[in-house]
């Protein structure tokens, strides 16, 4: 994964409707519970299964640790979608 794909675009306002580039992909953060969803993602890795590089996984000790503020902070920083798994 290159540095360019890792970079999250900083929002520049005021926001205007724009043409969506053909190669645009949504930036997704996945909050995954250590004991189930993250373990499943880990297993997928062991099985050499691939998942899209525009999904960034954040491991939580439990999905109960997921807080409003984590999701809002992700959106504040320009994430397009949040995936909560647990």
């Amino acid at each position: 994964m290159t540095a360019a794909t890792e970079k999250i675009e900083q929002p520049v306002g005021p926001e205007k409707p724009q043409e969506i580039p053909v190669d645009w992909k949504a930036n997704i953060v996945a909050f995954a519970c250590h004991y189930c969803a993250f373990a499943a993602a880990d297993l997928a890795g062991v099985m050499r299964l691939s998942y899209p590089s525009n999904v960034k996984v954040v491991r939580l000790p439990c999905s109960g640790k997921l807080d409003h503020s984590y999701i809002l902070r992700a959106f504040e920083r320009g994430i397009d979608g949040v995936f909560a798994a647990g």
Partner: peptide
């Protein structure tokens, strides 16, 4: 957080 997002949008 919501206000920060609104400020960015505007």
């Amino acid at each position: 957080s919501l206000l920060r997002m609104r400020a960015t949008q505007e």
